[in-house]
Design a protein around this nucleic acid. Sequence first.
DNA 1: GTCTATAGTGCGATAGAC
DNA 2: GTCTATCGCACTATAGAC
Lengths: 238, 238
Amino acid sequence: MTFAQFSRRESLSPGDICREMLEGHRESIKTKKEHTAVRNLELILAATLAVSNQKGFQAMSMRDLSLASGLSMGALYDYFSSKEELLEMIQATGRRLTRRVLERGIEGIDDPVARLTAAIRTHVYLSEALQAWFFFSYMEARHLGEEEKEKAKQSELYTEGVLSEIIAQGQAAGVFAPLDRHLAAAMIKAMLQDWYLKRWKYAGRRVGVDRYADFVVQMALSFCLSGGGADASGEITL
Amino acid sequence: MTFAQFSRRESLSPGDICREMLEGHRESIKTKKEHTAVRNLELILAATLAVSNQKGFQAMSMRDLSLASGLSMGALYDYFSSKEELLEMIQATGRRLTRRVLERGIEGIDDPVARLTAAIRTHVYLSEALQAWFFFSYMEARHLGEEEKEKAKQSELYTEGVLSEIIAQGQAAGVFAPLDRHLAAAMIKAMLQDWYLKRWKYAGRRVGVDRYADFVVQMALSFCLSGGGADASGEITL
DNA sequence: GTCTATAGTGCGATAGAC
DNA sequence: GTCTATCGCACTATAGAC
């Protein structure tokens, strides 16, 4: 699978995402005409990500957002009742989306090597398609209320759990080495996140998304298959 | 080397660090009595990291800082001329410190495997000793002005350059596989950063600093030595 | 060297016209 | 459904007493 193939398979245009967003927040959005609501959500979303990823969500004022989106301050409050709710809305939609796309990316693939490869590629490609969104979710998660912050952590652990279960499956099949699968999954997750957190670095080096995905797959498989060489046999599997 | 040994070797107490901080900002700090200045810088630093790492630097008001540090708003402004300068002061001190400790951690070690191991361990241990500081630097770098933001990026590239040069050295010696050393260094860096960015995760799983450092070393060496298995020969070395 | 008090600015949110 | 105008509040930074 390449990024181009992934993009064709998944419909992740701003319109698609905002329709999903509207679906999940019907009760709190005052505008009832579907078409208008989706169009304005697109404006709000694009503006929020653009301004926040540059200066931070806290530092983005409602006046900034009004200017960047083209909607008045009054109109903005038809789509959320407070700045905090806007943040939660974006985070919740991202979590649902990630979960769905990741599940679809690995379903029906049983061979551990192929399944781990698919999980990694799907995650890198998804975060490429929604780079601004992923960056935003990562950097602004700490500004959520306690309740929503907990959901963000659970979401991180979910993704990691997907990886760790694939490793367990490979170990049960005797294909992967008996290394600590939770730590291995955490390390793969860290590598996946670097792609959307350090864009400036990879852009400057002209590393593209397919090459990046290849490299992470290679590194993860190398480790899982060999177990880190001679001295891995003593590792705890938990 | 273990974390306990590292801690004994490096003097990284709040007092040491704040003395270094005072050294670098003599001209802008109005309080002239060394003892008083260091004591208050300690209070300011501890309070800034505590409050900022919980709610973000932008969201921390000067009133918050005054309350948490025990100094009045007026007194705070004897140590920096604006909130932005406080941020820059912390970042600059952290950069200097990281560079110095990392250099000292690998000097005199020539064998590539031992040198890569030392670099990784030193970084993990340093970020353990100054966890709050590293977390702060990472999360708040984007709120710096353009000039200082550039320095933060250079600092990230410096650390990565250290890793990448060790890999090059190992490749020249025929010990490491001919993989893309810049990407490999970036992946190791990502793993190093996870330790101080996701404390909650590792604490919850009772993974300690020595075990974490071991694991990263194992994963990095496994990959550098084997080059990712059969299909690594075609990789570009740049 | 440290304090309290406050000036001046810009914030999030809303009321009410259209 | 969208706008403009504005309220009340909290912010950063400073002035001047001690």
